[in-house]
Design a protein around this nucleic acid. Structure first.
Lengths: 244, 244
DNA sequence: ACCCTATAAAGTGTCGACAATCTGAAGTCG
DNA sequence: CGACTTCAGATTGTCGACACTTTATAGGGT
């Protein structure tokens, strides 16, 4: 007994912001609760629903012209992403953005993305390598274009990490990072607005990581990725300690 | 006779995001959906509801004398643990136990528990060290008692990994492992019935890991834990390849 | 015998309403 | 004047019913 592989998870990882308004044009096999979930996720990540604010089920239900039942399903999915917290008989609140929470995310990312690099190097396919090289080339041109200014915003960085993880071919890892953790990462980036000021350095580091993956050197790829993330963490840490 | 609540002795997790709420939460989590969730989780983990089997909402609702609404909430929570999979307009199935899925879990655990060890060594408190030593002592006596026979079943091993993760003091890490991933690990252990045949070796490895944490050597602790988990993974891998 | 179509059955998605609980303010007593 | 009790308002948890989709079954055509 073996064989059946659950490809179900990694598919949904679309970064594209779904239509903010309830334009019912969507064809498809997605439920109302599904659409509510996607919309609310965007609003929370982008801060249109403030971090730490209370969520009123009746109010949101009226706003989206849906029943409380469907809305509750959306809220529970948001809870499973740790974007909101629910207490019984009290209600739901958007999570707070804390310094500690952000640093904790970095530690987890260091571990998981390091492993993703190792696996990507071990299981590398010509197809993955092609996409990675292509992406790096795009980013290089972007960087040439706007010298020094933030390396195409955080989006370029996101793109990089996203594809590396995909190349690991470990569905659990992909799901944990791309479908769960990354939404909270984006929430921090949007709302604490940290455009990485490590433009050139970050690009070079990305480049070296992909080289290691190409060479099939999983150990090196892991080390480089962990160092890359830890540098980013230190950077944030300094920034935050100065702010206070 | 229904066991109702999981008798997960030493292994009961605390919800994530330990906000400094002074009074011990202590309030019974008395939502009906909550109880259904706990009951179903046990039944799935222990295999009383077979892996891969279809789940009928009306049938389960009748069986527990609850409405479909409450049951659906429980099911969605199970989905967020990856214990069941739901497809729109089709229904829910208990996840399959696949060789690939099991190995993927080991890779993720290697990354996360390795990091947990590193953090535990960095943030070690006298309280945590005391508990770890005490636990190790208990396990040692257990081992003396039943020489060689499976090191107090997998429970001892579980206890070890559980407490190490707690000692990391990273709430995200704790939540990811203890409140999410470990239930699937337990599901595999119960149903593929793999009592680790690495009794003495596992105990010695545990011992060395805790020594490294005591010494504050995060790097060594991480390396040892990763080696420990990788050995367990290889062990399983061999076992499975022989079975086929 | 096979394939396609149409109908019936079952199951899921969604909704509105009722009951239990919590929050907050007014009122009372020391 | 302050602390406790009481009560009203609002919110969450739970339920049963209805609409739509999927699936299984039976029938007819080639």
């Amino acid at each position: 007994m073996e064989g059946q592989i659950s490809k179900t998870s990694a598919v949904e990882a679309k970064a594209g912001t779904a239509s903010a308004e309830g334009g019912k044009g969507a064809r498809g096999s997605q439920s109302l609760a599904d659409r509510l979930f996607l919309t609310l996720r965007s609003e929370i990540v982008e801060g249109r629903i403030a971090a730490g604010s209370k969520i009123s089920e009746p109010e949101l239900a009226r706003r989206f012209d849906a029943s409380r039942g469907s809305l509750r399903e959306a809220l529970m999915r948001l809870e499973s992403l740790s974007l909101i917290e629910r207490k019984v008989n009290v209600g739901a609140r958007v999570v707070d953005l804390t310094e500690r929470g952000l640093l904790e995310i970095y530690d987890v990312r260091e571990a998981l993305e390091g492993m993703a690099c190792r696996l990507a190097a071990q299981n590398r396919s010509e197809e993955d390598l092609g996409e990675l090289r292509q992406m790096l080339h795009r980013h290089e041109q972007q960087e040439e274009l706007q010298k020094g200014t933030a390396y195409f915003q955080p989006e370029g960085d996101f793109d990089f990490h996203f594809r590396i993880v995909q190349a690991s071919h470990n569905d659990l890892l992909i799901d944990t990072l791309c479908n769960k953790l990354y939404y909270r990462v984006r929430m921090y980036r949007y709302q604490l607005g940290m455009a990485s000021p490590r433009a050139h350095r970050a690009f070079r580091e990305h480049s070296h990581i992909i080289e290691a993956i190409e060479a099939g050197d999983g150990e090196l790829a892991e080390i480089l990725m962990r160092r890359h993330i830890r540098a980013s963490r230190s950077n944030i840490e300094n920034k935050l300690s100065k702010q206070n």
